[in-house]
């Protein structure tokens, strides 16, 4: 474990709970893409199948349980409890256009052609594009609530910190995973446009609105 990965995991945890609290407190999921949340739930479920078979540490197992539970809870709040506030008119990204190619790629490019490894690879590839429905929804509505932009900033920062973690581990531990690094770069690059808007607007107290 290193500081980049620890801060990255905590940033990820923060993002998930900021969103969960926003929906729970405001009793509304306006401006939030349910499709992205479904993809994140799929990412965690396919990645943490080894939760019971491959014990790494208490921290690792605890975080896996928290990530799965909180993301499933978010999907539940959005599609069941506060379904009336779900903005399906703007959450129109066709996620099958993500899941199918990512699934195919996971079969073709992976470290080991075993079910667990292919599912892990699928999860890594899917996570890199899972935020697209959310970014697409913001581009359609033209703006995002401030709390939603904080969620996105924390979520985008987590994988950027993981990139630093991989640089650190490469030099100090000789650890390198090309699939995770390439997917992590794609994932972080997708946030660049948002990071720019966040830093130039939200940081100065302005609302995040995309140039019309």
């Amino acid at each position: 474990m290193n500081i980049f990965r620890l801060v990255g995991d905590l940033s990820h945890l923060l993002a998930i709970f900021v969103l969960l609290l926003k929906i729970w407190k405001s009793r509304s999921c306006a401006g939030v893409s349910g499709k992205s949340q479904i993809l994140f739930a799929l990412v965690f479920i396919t990645r943490y199948l080894d939760l019971f078979t491959n014990f790494i540490s208490v921290y690792n197992s605890l975080m896996k349980v928290i990530f799965i539970a909180s993301t499933v809870a978010t999907v539940y709040l959005m599609y069941i409890k506060f379904k009336a506030t779900y903005d399906s008119n703007h959450d129109t990204f066709r996620i099958e256009f993500l899941v199918v190619p990512v699934g195919g790629l996971a079969f073709l490019v992976n470290h080991d052609f075993t079910p667990l490894e292919i599912l892990w690879t699928f999860s890594i590839y899917l996570e890199s594009v899972a935020i697209l429905p959310q970014l697409f929804m913001i581009s359609k509505t033209g703006e995002a609530e401030t709390i939603t932009s904080h969620y996105l900033f924390a979520l985008g920062s987590y994988r950027a910190l993981y990139l630093l973690n991989w640089i650190y581990r490469y030099y100090f531990e000789g650890y390198f995973d090309l699939i995770a690094v390439v997917a992590g770069c794609v994932q972080t690059i997708l946030y660049c446009d948002f990071f720019y808007l966040y830093i130039t607007k939200v940081m100065w107290g302005k609302k995040l609105s995309l140039p019309a």
Binding site: D50, N54, I56, N60, K64, H111, N165, Y175, D177
Partner: peptide
Amino acid sequence: DEKQKNKDEL
């Protein structure tokens, strides 16, 4: 095995 052990990241 070694590969599986390597999966120590979230």
